[in-house]
Amino acid sequence: MVVEDDDDLRLAVTTELAGAGLEVAQAADIAAADLVLADGRFDCVVFDRMLPDGDAINYVHRRRQEGWAVPVLFLTARDTIADVVAGFEHGGDDYLVKPFAVAEMTARVLTLGRRAGSGRPSVLRLADLELDSARRQVRRAGVLLGLTGKEFAVLEFLMSRTGLAVSRTDLIEHCWDSSTDPMSNVVDVVIKRLRGKLGEPELLHTVRGRGYRIGGDE
C-alpha cells in the first residue's frame, strides 16, 4: 500500500513496486488509506508523513494502539534526528528521507514484506500469549496488545523458537535490514518495550551470553 499525495511520486513508487512483482494499492490521503486498509491484508504500507489530512505518524500510532502490526515505511522530507526518532517511536519500522533512490525504497519494502509474509504457522501460542500472523495481532489473556511492526516481528521470531535462546545477531538478521549495525542497541530497546507490553508473569527472558528466550524453564 502506497500513501502519497504527490501524484508523480506516487505513480513512480507504485510503478517501481509493481515492477518488482508486488500487488500495490494506493491512496492520496489518510482517510482514503484507512478505507482500503480496512478491507485488505497488506505486507507493508509506505506512508508519506505529511499528507493533506495530517501527519501519518499520528495515524500509525493510533492503529498500533489498536493492535495493528503491519510493517510501515515512512517517506518524508523531514530529516532531523528528532523527526526520525519520532517516526520510529510512533510505530514506523523504517524511515527514508526525500529525495531517495526508488530502487533503495523498493529493497526496503521487499525486506519488510518478507517478514510479514513468512511461512510460519498462522497462530503461535505460549501459555496465555497468542500471536496471530494472519491478522497481525497479539493477545495476552485475551487482551489485544498494541505492538509496532518491529515488536511484532521480534516476538514472532522468538515464539517460532519457543524455549530456545536466540542471539542478538539472529534477531538483527531476521527482523532488521542489512544496514543495521550489529553493535547497536536496537534489539535491547525493542526487547525492553516488548517486556513492558507483555506484562506479568514474565515470559521473555535474557539468557546471559547467548541472547533472549521466550518460554522454557529458568
Rank of each mutant, 00 (worst) to 15 (best):
Y59G: 00
F42M: 01
D43R: 06
D34A: 13
A33S: 09
L37P: 04
L37H: 04
A31Y: 09
D53G: 12
F47A: 04
M50S: 14
F47T: 01
M50D: 14
N58V: 13
C44G: 05
A32L: 10
D39I: 00
D43E: 12
A31S: 14
A33I: 06
P52A: 05
L37R: 09
D48L: 08
I30W: 02
A33Q: 03
A38N: 05
D39A: 15
R41Y: 05
I30P: 02
G40M: 12
D39S: 14
V46T: 10
A32D: 14
D48F: 03
G54H: 08
P52I: 08
D55T: 02
L35P: 03
G40A: 15
Y59M: 11
A56H: 02
A32I: 08
V36M: 11
G40V: 09
D48A: 11
V36G: 07
A32Q: 13
D39Q: 15
A31D: 13
D53Q: 10
F47R: 03
L51D: 06
G54K: 04
V36P: 08
F42K: 00
R41I: 04
I30C: 07
L51T: 01
G54F: 06
G40I: 03
Y59P: 00
F42S: 00
V36I: 15
D39G: 14
D53L: 11
A33H: 06
D53P: 10
A38K: 06
R49E: 10
L35Q: 13
A38S: 11
V46A: 12
V60L: 04
L35C: 09
V60F: 04
D48T: 08
G40C: 12
F47K: 03
G40K: 15
I57V: 13
M50C: 12
P52K: 10
L37Q: 07
I57F: 04
D39T: 07
F47V: 02
I57E: 00
A33F: 05
A31E: 13
V46H: 02
L37M: 13
N58R: 12
C44I: 09
A38T: 01
V60Q: 02
A33T: 05
R49Q: 11
I57P: 01
G54M: 10
Y59N: 00
Y59H: 09
L35S: 12
A38G: 09
D34W: 01
A38L: 04
A31R: 14
D48P: 12
V60E: 00
D43F: 03
D43H: 12
F47Y: 14
L35E: 15
D55P: 05
A38W: 01
A31K: 12
A32E: 13
A38H: 03
V60W: 03
N58E: 14
F42A: 01
R49W: 09
D48M: 07
I30L: 15
A32K: 10
R41K: 11
D48G: 11
D48W: 08
V36A: 14
N58W: 12
A38C: 02
V46M: 05
D53E: 11
C44M: 08
V45N: 03
I57L: 06
A56M: 04
L35I: 11
D43Q: 10
P52S: 07
A38F: 00
I30V: 12
D55Y: 01
